[in-house]
């Protein structure tokens, strides 16, 4: 079976800066794949490349057997994305925003789907509040809901947990675990190693745009006590580096 995501020598340069440098990786169906790396290592750029939001300087990638460089919109129709920074439009309410995404994505029963998300992420009381008046955490809930609204088979999510409190983090982590159990695939970027250690099946570590490690979490944990030890070593900050 072909991998769900397959990147080959993917690079993105901004002038002299190599934000992503010759990265090749495969993500298998049903995995919860964690992209780890320090701040500014190229995680967000990698997600943008894989979702066709920026064009690679060189290299190629296919997502769900579709070339992202030539058919980005076709890829985005089938996947869900949580961007790192983008927030919903200020002057729409949460409910209206999900209705908007639903129409753009041509979802038929969007109202029912939206209702489920308001219940599940516990923000029904904010459904009729303008997005500009929402707290960061609530906006993050809304962005989470919009990514999964159309029940995609694959979601690429950029630091999806940082604005959540521990209770909500647990809810969301459980959701992601169940989502992959049901056959979905998640590509998640984070610099929080505990999250990766807890939920990811596979990880890749990038540092200064270069892939320094890729493989199952179980294999790493077989060698080291914690993912963090391995990570620090991989990015050259370990005691043996």
């Amino acid at each position: 079976m072909a991998p769900v995501i397959s990147a080959s020598s993917l690079s993105k340069h901004y002038g002299d800066l190599k934000a992503v440098d010759q990265v090749s990786l495969d993500v298998e169906e049903g995995s919860l794949f964690g992209l780890l790396g320090p701040n500014g290592s190229g995680k967000t750029t990698m997600i943008r490349l894989l979702t066709g939001q920026v064009r690679p300087t060189s290299g190629s990638a296919t997502v769900l057997d579709t070339d992202v460089v030539t058919s980005p919109v076709k890829v985005r129709e089938r996947i869900g994305i949580i961007p790192e920074q983008e927030t919903p439009p200020s002057f729409l309410t949460s409910e209206e925003y999900l209705a908007f995404v639903g129409r753009v994505r041509k979802i038929s029963a969007v109202k029912e789907e939206a209702d489920w998300w308001f219940e599940f992420l516990e923000f029904s009381d904010k459904r009729d509040v303008l997005c500009k008046d929402l707290s960061r955490g609530t906006r993050q809930k809304l962005m989470f809901a919009q990514a999964f609204l159309h029940r995609p088979v694959l979601a690429l999510i950029d630091e999806p947990l940082i604005n959540f409190d521990p209770v909500m983090q647990k809810t969301v982590k459980d959701y992601l675990a169940e989502y992959v159990r049901d056959g979905g695939t998640i590509f998640l970027s984070t610099h929080i190693l505990e999250i990766a250690e807890e939920i990811c099946s596979d990880v890749a570590i990038i540092h200064r745009g270069r892939l320094v490690h890729a493989g199952p979490v179980a294999r790493i944990l077989g060698q080291r006590q914690h993912l963090s030890d391995f990570f620090l070593e991989a990015v050259g900050k370990g005691s043996h580096a």
Binding site: P89, S90, T93, E95, E96, A99, F100, V129, L130
Partner: peptide, 28 residues
Amino acid sequence: HIPDRFSPLAGHLDRFRSGPTVAKDLLD
């Protein structure tokens, strides 16, 4: 607290390909 004005508006613009984004822009 604001009732959903988007859905009815987008409903009117349903025939157009850009209906949802136009409805969003007008409200915004």
